[in-house]
Amino acid sequence: MSLSGFFQSYPGLYMAQAFFHSLVASIVAEIAIKAWDVRNPEVRQRVFLVPVVVPVFLFPLFQLFRPERDSTYFRLGTIFESGRWLRLEMLGIHPVMWGLVLVFTITSLVFLFQELIPILRHSYESGNPEKAVDKVDFPEDPAIRTALETLPVIPAVFVVEDDDFLIYSTTGKGAAVYVSSSLVKTLTEGELRSAVAHEISHVVRSRHPMLVGAYLLRALMFFNPVVLMEFRRAAQEEEKVCDEFAVSVTRNRRALVQALRKLYLPPEEPPPPRGRRSRKTAKEIEEHSHRLNIESRISRLESGEDHDPGIRWLVPAAVAVAAVLINYFIV
């Protein structure tokens, strides 16, 4: 089958339209975020998940209920017909078609190496936590025990002998929070309670059906770069949602801010003399981006922004409705 033939087949039409549907849904989501000035991380996360979920279902549903959507007349009256761009011919090739294939291939590889393989590896390692670290249960550590006394839910919490500042959680059957011994020594009681509460939120929310469902749908769209990007944005909001959870149970915003600063924001090293290095390495860019993300979390916590309860479901619903309506005319 030729490439042109593939894009006229059902799988080809599905992939192309899912891409354009997610792109439009993503723009609609961005318009909504700006229009309502949405800052609540939970609402932002729901909005970012619309472009992840919508493209999975739209094309099959539209085809099922309105098969004539594929006809020449319908296509002529649409807002945007992807086929026109895909069939565009220059010097005997279809540049948009090939460009889309390239983008789909790169995104599939990114999904495979940055998401699927690490998740499988993580699942395997979580199944054998005993082998992974040398740890002690938290009741044996007086500092941790005192810090966690007031928390409403406590999963397994372990202290790992390590000189680095580490705190992380594993999910699934062996869900647990791991804290390094040096971090336990460095953080105050309140800071430690906030940091652990944040990780507990990750453990609790990892069982959230909406997030589990969103991840499965995102996996179906493994080829779609827009879905990849929007899912990562939603995942970034997850950190802020967990911050909010930690603040709600500890009632100590300041302690979480201090814990974040100690954990992730060591004083920056002075930049190297000019001229010696003109290009940033990938690691430096990643660190800078991580730092920006932490700074944004800190600034959010310090400003104590409200939860905007009035738009909790209104904005995601408006985005979903607009995305479905506009995408009906994107073929």
Partner: peptide
Amino acid sequence: TAFGFLAFAAGLAILVIALKTLNGLPLIAQ
């Protein structure tokens, strides 16, 4: 909230116009 709706509707209108314009470009080229 009402102002948000207005801004959202205006944003969507701009999006639809932009998509319509993009849709016409291949007809000029081919």
